[in-house]
Amino acid sequence: MELTLLILCGGLAVITSLMVILARNTVHSALWMVASFFFMAVLYLLLRMEFIAILQIIVYAGAIMMFIIYAIMMLNLRQETADTEPVRKSKVVGLGMLVVLFFVLLVLGVGRGIEALKGPVTDQMMEKFGHVAVLSNFLFSDYLLPFEVVSILLTAGIVGSVFLAKKGKA
């Protein structure tokens, strides 16, 4: 049952992700991305991570994609973008990166086995305390520093983008 779901949703996540880059219409691309986020959320559910799954939907499928679609609608990119002259160099580089990434995944995932990627959170722990409690305990004790550093990084990103956007006007 779980394996079937995993293969089904994993496969659908891959297909919808492919549709993101293959769709001609920008809004359609964004919608395929929302669908792909949903299948990713199901994958998190299969890992018994309810909390992460719902955050995936709230933050990515909800808020971030809403922003992206808003921007697309604002810029009125409705007409299908014409197929411009293919840029050969970037295509070659992209393909090369794809091959490299594929091998990295192959070595990490299949070569060393999935076991190597397991964190400290176990099923027993989550049944005893609940997902949110386990996660927040780790987040605010052992992993406090990385957690805070990430938030500083995000703030820096926001400040940077505001600066870049204001540069021309002020």
Partner: peptide, 19 residues
């Protein structure tokens, strides 16, 4: 376990309909 987050998340998805 995450009832209230479920409500917040799904109601966001609903507003895609309007958009």
């Amino acid at each position: 376990d995450i009832g209230i987050l479920y409500v917040l998340g799904i109601s966001t998805i609903g507003s895609y309909g309007c958009m």
